[in-house]
Amino acid sequence: MADTFNRVKELIVEHLDVKPEEVTLEAGIKDDLGADSLDVVDLILNLEQEFDLDQIEEEDSEKIVTVGDIVTYIEKQKQEQK
């Protein structure tokens, strides 16, 4: 969990040009980290690649609001892949 969070954090810092300390589990990707709708899509594409995930469905990606939502989603996918 902590490892996933750190990797997600790194990705967000790089893609959204924010400070590491701003990226908390509770932080809203759009509201707190200033992402626009295309940043979110771009971030999802990069998560798929970085974590070797299957394509994230539209309805799942719509539910991703906070950094914590991303971590939870990835953890769940990893469980299912096992």
Partner: peptide
Amino acid sequence: REVFKFAV
């Protein structure tokens, strides 16, 4: 949104 993902 979906065209964006497809394209990339």
